[in-house]
Nucleic acid binder design. Structure first.
Lengths: 204, 204
DNA sequence: ACATAAATTATCATATATTCCAATTTTCCT
DNA sequence: AGGAAAATTGGAATATATGATAATTTATGT
């Protein structure tokens, strides 16, 4: 799970792949290259840290297509788009869609390395946040429907008495649910629970 | 305060200004144009809603310079950059720095209007969130130092007894501070207070 | 039909928080 | 020095939450 970060390189041009691989390895970065977006997707593993250098113009799935696919994933490596014949609208689209960079070939080696390092740092940060979030989501999904209802009321600041009235159940029941929620979510205070609810976007 | 949104146009080219003004007014949008970034800054009023169409290449302050200045403001209209001789790196920089669009001249009138409408909607949304935040900030700043300390502990989920021990004061005092905090912040429950604390970024 | 999880309720004891009240001491500004 | 705001404390009554324990009723799926 917690491997060293890789620089994933997706380009149909063998020259570019080997040049980039050489560049990355020259500074001790692990590189993995693919000749098509499809090849990359096949081995894609959300838990592998790193960043992705992606050519726009490729046979089959284009770089922007791949970018769109990856955006649907909850977590994916930051994307650096490279292109031989880029234009402004394409760059705007790529960056707006979440690419961290859009670089024209031929590129400067040093600035490429700078960008890669920045992207890898960003990935590490996102990954840390995301793994915490996934833990919380996992626990949340183990709540029963009723417990989720009570949780929703709790984070809205309602008192047990009110919740009981709204749900037409006794206060004891609410207390029971509430207590289970705290246990299952591993929350040790209300504010702790609220923080989790925020990450889960249960809050308006 | 709550005026109709304006389209602010900043371009040193009189032709462009009048063309854009005409375009905006043709769909019922209010337009205000300026021949330099400096002129715009002079009349800049954070409370005026709308969006900003900004030329990059201008004598004096450039569009990107103005963008940087505005980014320092807590709230500013969304920026649509327009340019005659744009290149990819410039577009990437502008979008990365927060511009909502980067459009080359000559542009398509309809797509420009679409972008303007989208930007104005975004501005309205940001403005709504921001005014709520300002209310909360105002109330927060009326708290005494001691009350702020207690608030910090409360949102960390500490019980009054613990807070009293940590601050070396009696539990009664903590209760007094806490009660005042709830009053002053107009919070009617702990979760309410937590939500505010989040917006104030008092939470890790 | 049986087993299991979920939902429901209750009681008792304790711990905490909230809300009144009133009072003293500190600090800071004019 | 005088006054205002802030910080401090205590008491007493009330409301709420928590925690442990136990028991009943309802689904749910095999």
């Amino acid at each position: 799970m917690n491997d060293a970060p890789s620089v994933f390189i997706v380009d149909d041009d063998e020259q570019v792949r080997s040049a980039l691989t050489f560049l990355m390895e020259s500074v001790g970065l692990q590189a993995e290259s693919f000749s098509s977006a499809h090849d990359y997707l096949e081995q894609f593993n959300a838990s592998k840290p790193g960043c992705l250098i992606l050519d726009v113009r490729m046979p089959g799935l284009s770089g922007l297509d791949l970018q769109a696919r990856l955006s649907a994933e909850t977590i994916h490596p930051p994307i650096i788009i490279i292109t031989g014949h880029g234009d402004v609208p394409m760059a705007v689209r790529a960056v707006t869609a979440g690419a961290v960079d859009f670089i024209e070939k031929p590129f400067n080696n040093q600035s490429m390395l700078d960008n890669v390092h920045r992207a890898i740092e960003l990935d590490a940060k996102q990954r840390g946040e995301s793994s915490r979030l996934q833990d919380i989501e996992k626990r949340y999904n183990e709540l029963t429907p009723r417990e989720k209802e009570v949780l929703q009321c709790v984070i809205e600041g309602k008192r047990n008495k009110i919740i009981a009235a709204e749900m037409n159940i006794s206060q004891s029941t609410v207390e029971a649910h509430r207590s289970k929620v705290m246990d299952k979510m591993l929350a040790d205070s209300l504010s702790d629970l609220m923080r989790m609810a925020l990450l889960l976007k249960l809050i308006s």
